[in-house]
Design a protein around this nucleic acid. Sequence first.
DNA 1: CCTCGGTATTGACGTCTGTCGATATCGGCA
DNA 2: TGCCGATATCGACAGACGTCAATACCGAGG
Lengths: 124, 124
Amino acid sequence: MSNLKELPVLQPGTIADATGAAVVPCCAPLSREPLGAEDAERVAVMFKALGDPVRLRLFSQIASHPGGEACVCDIQDVGVSQPTVSHHLKKLRDAGLVTSERRGSWVYYKVTPSVVAALGGVLR
Amino acid sequence: MSNLKELPVLQPGTIADATGAAVVPCCAPLSREPLGAEDAERVAVMFKALGDPVRLRLFSQIASHPGGEACVCDIQDVGVSQPTVSHHLKKLRDAGLVTSERRGSWVYYKVTPSVVAALGGVLR
DNA sequence: CCTCGGTATTGACGTCTGTCGATATCGGCA
DNA sequence: TGCCGATATCGACAGACGTCAATACCGAGG
């Protein structure tokens, strides 16, 4: 039936700390200690996802919508074709930065706050 | 002669890389308002620079060295050849994330804290 | 001046990525 | 049931990217 709830490619193995605060995928701030090869691999995927102007705008549109979520139909005017928009949204989702959910005819994309916060934390 | 130093209205803290291209810690948080096309272009360059595992490790090594700077000779063991290391360091520099300085035979790379901080601020 | 160690540049190569048009899928609705 | 709007997938293509070996450049010492 519904294809919702498909697990993200991001493997969340290391996410929750003892307090239960979900903080994501990984890693101390970059300036604290050198990143290991595996961690670098994982974090790079997320930075790379934000490393394209179109994706960055899509992500920004989603994030700045009320509730941190937006219907695809609301964010399609970024200057590329509809298939390309879909392709970029998929990349954002594969990177774990957003999740998607179908509601009737429309699909809504929502930011994953913990992942974004963790990514920001890495840059400190 | 001097490059034309025409730059748009932007925050202080403008960073010029070796080529004179202005790279700026720009923009409000992504979740505050949708990113414009040019801002997205500029920010994406920085995220893209961090979107490669090797560069991420190099950057992390530089950032975690005392003083936020490191000699190239200290960070060459990331599993790729010397030319490749040099190529990646150049990309980090072009993105405005680090600067480089020659001291005698060695070259030191140093993080640009304002840029990194701004990048982190965008992820809020 | 010449050599040497450290770093950058060049040129080539295979792979990845962004893009599009065409088409498939999925719900709502007449 | 059949059509339609919304979104995803497919196939193709050009250009960007990561990588290396070879080589050039640049200071320090002899």
